[in-house]
């Protein structure tokens, strides 16, 4: 039986990137909109790690913010454990909020520099009324030890810690409301590799221990490969391919996925011949027609410039490419 924790349907978010009103009038410009997330649909099952991978402008961070309610969707729905998320206040939403948390990219910005570590970790506990009095301190001490720090660290300020230690504190804060689901937005991209390994291992241990479900947002394919069960590849706000982690790396279906895999430096020195990657990501304010990848695609066909391709089922997921539906060479 499939137990879906998070279901996202047709999620779309546009931003108004117009110049100020006066400039528009003087320069006779029209309003401009950027579609950061375009009709994105996916589901995350309990206990798995679902990764969204993409380059700049792919909309991956916007999706993370939409899911935790930092942004409002323009269209589409997000349902958590079957309940639609409406971020207007209310008891139901308050109860839902406790059950998901977020880990941010920059451990130097995600901890309030004027707060002691103990206060930072206790904030969700107090906000959700999960404990009071001395119980709060006991819980903070326990959480610090869970993430590999010492209980005495509660009295210190964030600047007394290294980047990796700060990310541990951020993880302890995320765990403090006893959530089931954690959105991890580039959790290690600000860290050095040896520290990244510590944090990735810790995240896996915590997942096993507490049965957590992760949505991992990353630009780093090797991190995603290491952590995720299923992966969604984003390009200019759309999901171009979703597949099981193993399958995506051994048998990529979408040309963009293939290109991304080819761009990963070869540490094994296998002498693998790489297809040269060409072109750059177009300006998302004015994206190409049809399949937005078509100007960079080695297999581009006439049909790709028309309507955007629909998701076609693949072995373990789906991909949005006409190569899968049209006879090659047409």
């Amino acid at each position: 039986m499939v137990d879906t924790v998070l279901q996202v349907e047709g999620l779309t978010r546009t931003f108004d990137v117009s110049k100020p009103w006066l400039n528009r009038v003087l320069e006779r410009d029209h309003k401009q909109f950027l579609t950061a997330v375009d009709n994105v649909t996916f589901g995350i099952e309990r206990g798995e790690t679902f990764a969204l991978v993409g380059e700049s402008g792919s909309g991956k961070s916007t999706i993370a913010k939409l899911i935790v309610g930092l942004l409002k969707p323009s269209r589409g729905t997000i349902a958590f454990d079957g309940q639609p998320m409406s971020f207007e206040s209310g008891t139901a939403m308050r109860n839902l909020r406790r059950r998901f948390q977020m880990i941010f990219q920059d451990p130097f910005a995600s901890l309030n520099p004027r707060w002691r570590v103990g206060e930072i970790i206790a904030e969700p506990i107090r906000t959700f009324g999960l404990a009071s009095g001395a119980d709060v301190h006991r819980e903070v001490a326990r959480l610090l030890e869970v993430v590999g720090l010492s209980a005495t660290d509660a009295g210190k300020f964030p600047h007394e810690f290294s980047g990796g230690q700060r990310q541990r504190i951020a993880i302890a804060r995320a765990l403090s409301s006893k959530p089931e689901f954690i959105v991890c937005d580039e959790p290690t991209s600000a860290l050095d590799v040896s520290v990244q390994a510590q944090i990735l291992n810790l995240m896996r241990d915590l997942q096993d221990e507490f049965g957590l479900t992760y949505l991992l947002i990353s630009h780093d394919l090797s991190v995603v490969r290491h952590m995720a069960n299923r992966i969604g590849v984003l390009y200019l706000g759309r999901i171009v391919e979703v597949a099981d982690s193993k399958r995506l790396f051994t048998d990529p279906q979408h040309p963009y996925t293939r290109m991304l895999l080819d761009a990963v430096p070869d540490l094994a020195l296998s002498g693998r011949r790489r297809t040269p990657v060409t072109g750059e990501i177009p300006n998302p304010i004015n994206p190409p027609s049809g399949c937005t990848f078509h100007p960079r695609c080695p297999h581009v066909m006439d049909i790709c410039r028309g309507d955007p391709p629909a998701q076609t089922p693949t072995a373990t997921g789906a991909a949005a490419c006409y190569l899968l539906t049209e006879p090659v060479g047409s």
Binding site: S89, R97, M102, A109, S110
Partner: peptide, 13 residues
Amino acid sequence: NKEYVQAAKVIGA
């Protein structure tokens, strides 16, 4: 716009 403020918003402060 810093992440510590976003973290507080996520828990509905």
